[in-house]
Nucleic acid binder design. Structure first.
Lengths: 170, 170
DNA sequence: ATTTATACGGAGGGTTCCTCCGTTTAGCAA
DNA sequence: TTGCTAAACGGAGGAACCCTCCGTATAAAT
């Protein structure tokens, strides 16, 4: 008897697959940030030190890659909030997180636009997911700063986030 | 003594150049409407019955072509308004023009987005130009319809236009 | 150690991009 | 008309990119 996370008698996912997937995402972040959203996928593969076939196996279309990069960065912003939560100064923590967020929006807006263009259905799902994740993140930081009495308490996480994004897109 | 429209002792611009430019624009409109904004430029050249070199001479970049097509259509909408002005029924004229405008926005939004992505500086100039041109066009039609007493008189051309465009982009 | 399901790499055929240059032609003057 | 010349034309061709396909390699399971 064995523990099988998913249905079907499938074996454990291969370690190299996971590793390569991660490498590609990292490379994509770099390349797209530098060369805009139409950068060559072969350049991404090269940067990742991976064959072009591998890239296409993990991300069958350009949009799939965009989405994965986007998701991953949102996730990382969430984790950053977790780390900052146990940091010393609440306001300083909040400030840092906001700064990171600004940078994220700035570099990814091109990709977001490209996604919006070619997007079929699941775009709203994506935005909903990321909005919720980020709201939760900023929420915890806000609460802590408010509890320490260093900022006003009448700002909702949603409003703060919306304002921030709005400003970044001018 | 000769009439020289521009400075410099340049001769009259060649007729074939103008003709080809126009052909390319017409073809671009067709091809981009059918195949989206990433359609092949060589397809445009074929459709125009023109060598690829000619296309590139007139429009050095894809964006330049986008912009020219866009401008030309705005211009044509303006002219359409002129024609409709001397048409019979004022409201009917207005209605027709609005319909044409809707169609324009619908088919060109992809191109507009692409332009916005790759746009350097002169994008605001473009939007300003087209907004003014269209406002003037709808203005004359509105006035005439209002003068005939068939519609309300408290709608400004700007508001009408903005509302229309907003609705088209949902 | 052997088996085998998975994943990897990259060659290759097709498409598009964009430049470059030899050829053609429209305007102009004699 | 004819001839001259600047301007415009066409499309071949090298480079980049896309994406598929398949022989090879390897991580997990036995």
């Amino acid at each position: 008897m064995e523990i099988r996370s998913a249905k079907k008698g499938s074996r454990k996912p291969r370690a190299d697959a996971q590793r390569n997937r991660e490498r590609v995402l990292e490379a994509a972040k770099t390349v797209f940030s530098a060369g805009g959203p139409d950068a060559s996928l072969e350049a991404v593969a090269r940067e990742a030190g991976v064959g072009i076939g591998t890239l296409y196996r993990h991300f069958p279309t350009r949009e799939a890659l965009y989405e994965a990069v986007y998701r991953r960065e949102v996730e990382q912003l969430g984790e950053l909030a977790e780390e900052l939560k146990s940091d010393g100064a609440p306001v300083e923590a909040l400030r840092r997180w906001l700064r990171a967020n600004v940078e994220f929006v700035a570099t990814k807006k091109g990709m977001a636009a490209a996604l919006a263009l070619a997007a079929g259905s699941p775009l709203s799902e994506l935005t909903a997911f990321s909005f919720e994740r980020l709201t939760k993140a900023v929420g915890t930081l806000l609460d802590r700063a408010a509890a320490s009495g260093e900022i006003r308490t009448d700002v909702s996480p949603e409003d703060l986030l919306r304002t921030l994004v709005g400003m970044c897109l001018l």
